[in-house]
């Protein structure tokens, strides 16, 4: 499959070799949807996004408040653990640096929680310094529900299961709390360049 898709895209294959992590193939224009549950249908007037510590809500935005935050446009390659990669995906949203602000000094990890019950865990220092966003726009259009709209995490340097769809809450934690796939044998960290797919890798 890798050979075929690269053959059809010979013009970009040299670049693809550099940008394709081990064990991945270029999915081209496709954007597969791998869902472990029903697609949540949260109306924008009921949507909010919040940051919590272990006991309290620290920050909260309604949809309109979120949309008024400073925005960034990013173009990144994304890598799914099921072996497809997609180059030059264009997103718009708000940096997690903006959303997290000054976190308590004890914070080491965050746990992202989504509508539908999905969770994923991330080290704090991997989602700050311009490495992660909460995005609501894909290729200039509102992010479609099947791709995580109205808003999802974008953490492109890790496998895409870390970029939680339909995310609503970040909890700041002094310890690591494995999420939905991390508790089912997937790697706790998920770096595609080190091929951290499963817990034994």
């Amino acid at each position: 499959m890798t050979v075929l898709s690269r053959g059809f895209r010979r013009g970009r294959s040299d670049r693809a070799d550099d940008r394709l992590p081990p064990g991945q193939y270029d999915v081209g224009d496709a954007f597969p949807v791998l869902s472990a549950g029903p697609t949540p249908q949260t109306r924008l007037e009921r949507w909010d996004f919040s940051v919590h510590d272990q006991t309290d809500e620290l920050r909260r935005w309604t949809w309109d408040e979120f949309r008024a935050l400073p925005r960034e446009a990013v173009s990144v390659d994304i890598h799914c653990v099921t072996t497809w990669s997609k180059f030059d995906t264009r997103w718009e949203g708000v940096s997690l640096d903006t959303l997290l602000g000054d976190v308590p000094g004890t914070t080491r990890y965050i746990l992202a929680a989504s509508d539908g019950g999905y969770t994923t865990n991330l080290p704090l220092d991997e989602v700050t310094a311009g490495r992660a966003w909460l995005v609501d726009t894909y290729e200039g259009q509102p992010l479609a529900p099947e791709h995580g709209g109205p808003a999802r995490l974008l953490v492109p340097h890790l496998y895409f299961w870390k970029s939680a769809k339909w995310v609503r809450r970040l909890t700041l934690l002094p310890y690591d709390e494995p999420g939905f796939w991390e508790t089912f044998g997937y790697h706790n960290h998920g770096d595609p360049w080190r091929e951290e797919r499963y817990s034994g890798d």
Binding site: V33, S35, A36, G37, V81, F184, Y198
Partner: peptide, 30 residues
């Protein structure tokens, strides 16, 4: 049953919460 994900995910037909996850991976059943 949601079979597209990296595991079979079986959900409650009443509340849709996850009931069972199942995968065969690297020679092991999970």
């Amino acid at each position: 049953l949601y079979a597209d994900a990296p595991a079979l995910v079986l959900r409650c037909p009443s509340c849709t919460d996850v009931v069972l996850r199942y995968a065969i991976r690297e020679g092991r059943i999970l």
